[in-house]
C-alpha cells in the first residue's frame, strides 16, 4: 500500500468515527430533551394518578 493510500484510509477511518459519534451526540442530546419534556408533561410519571396531591 502506498503512503498516500494509507493517508486516505486514515482520514476515512477518522471521518467515520467522528460521523458515528456526532450522530450519537445528536441522538443522545435529542432523546434526553424529549424525555425531559415528556417527564414534565401530563404524560410524565405520577401525572394523572393523583400522586401529587
Amino acid at each position: 500500500m502506498r503512503i498516500i493510500d494509507a493517508v486516505v484510509v486514515g482520514l476515512f477511518c477518522m471521518s467515520v468515527v467522528f460521523a458515528v459519534l456526532v450522530v450519537l451526540w445528536g441522538a443522545v442530546a435529542a432523546f434526553g430533551r424529549l424525555i425531559r419534556f415528556l417527564e414534565a408533561s401530563p404524560l410524565g410519571p405520577g401525572r394523572g394518578t393523583g400522586a401529587g396531591r
Partner: peptide
Amino acid sequence: LLARPSSLVMGAGAQFGIAAAFIIAIA
C-alpha cells in the same frame, strides 16, 4: 456522558492515534 453528550466528540478525537499509527506503519 449522558449529562454532557458533547463528550462523544472528544472520544472521537482521541482515536487520532489510530489513523496516525496506521500511516506510519505503512510508511
